[in-house]
Amino acid sequence: MPGSNLVSFIKKPSVMSLTSNLPVSLNVQLGRLSLKNPILVASGTFGYAREMSAFVDYAQLGGIIPKTVTREPRAGNPPPRTVETTAGLLNSIGLDNDGIEVFITKHLEALSLLPTALIVNIAGKSTEDFVVMARRLDEFNPIQALELNISCPNVSGGVDYGTNPTMTAEVVAAVRQATSKPIIAKLTPNVTSVVEIARAAANAGADALSLVNTFQGFAVDWKTGEPRLGNGLGGLSGPAIKPLALRIVWQVAQAVDCPIIGVGGIQSLDDVLEFLVCGATAVQVGTANFYNPSLSSQLTSGLEKVLQDRGCSRVQELIKTVKVPKNQRKTC
């Protein structure tokens, strides 16, 4: 019978696949945003992508997020803008950029031609800033999503959007109205409860949450009393913050029903997997781009191999597989 032949034809490869390479789907879904794999690069650590061209195979990335764009040009903070701390990097770049119009004329076309998803990160001083930029970018089809930087610790004169759930909800909801594109809210860890802010962003319509931006820090030369950064305060990134970011990803994943993009100190495939297991659907490689510029595009093949070795056909099978801590498993 033709039917039984068909069945055996379909069955054979799946039996073989126990010993050979099973095709693995790295595709992930972040709300309305679909990515070919979960490896992204964090805004502010990848320039406008062209800076990385000698080191990175863009096609291997799930997407790229260029440096934050603001409505008006910003000179950025006075140098020194970075100082290295133990296993970390403290920065106060200050969103140095030429503003949205120059971004469109100077960078957008080149970014649009790259063989990977383009997510544009925007920051504003007001909800109106965010809305105006979201509307302006809405017409550009190659932009697949917007990431709202409501968490940069280096630019606000007063309270950041991301430190207040009401303001977070307001800006996410307003941008949701202003654009048809998926929205990612990038949150700050510098709050008492990221869960509360995350819930506000999710309820207001965020497709995904990037967790987390840098941790506020300070460095000083005790001999002179001079702060080491021109701006004084800075944001800490790098391997030093990985456990801190992982804690937040894990807690938010338990409490809020919204896809998470994990970011904080990732510098190896193990780090990527830890974030996925703790509840991240995708990750961003950040500071490691500075000291291992070819890393990001090497992670995808490594991830595929790990999934094959574990017999997973989809990356989703790994996500949020973290177990309940041992001392909480006992029933009384």
Binding site: G44, T45, F46, G47, E51, M52, A54, F55, K67, G76, P79, P80, R81, T82, V83, E84, L89, N91, I93, D96, T287, N289, F290, Y291, P293
Partner: peptide, 16 residues
């Protein structure tokens, strides 16, 4: 010579 994180233009640390 200015403090530099990446050396290839991505970080915007080393400005003059």
């Amino acid at each position: 010579e200015t403090p530099m994180a990446c050396g290839f233009g991505a970080c915007f640390s080393c400005v003059a």
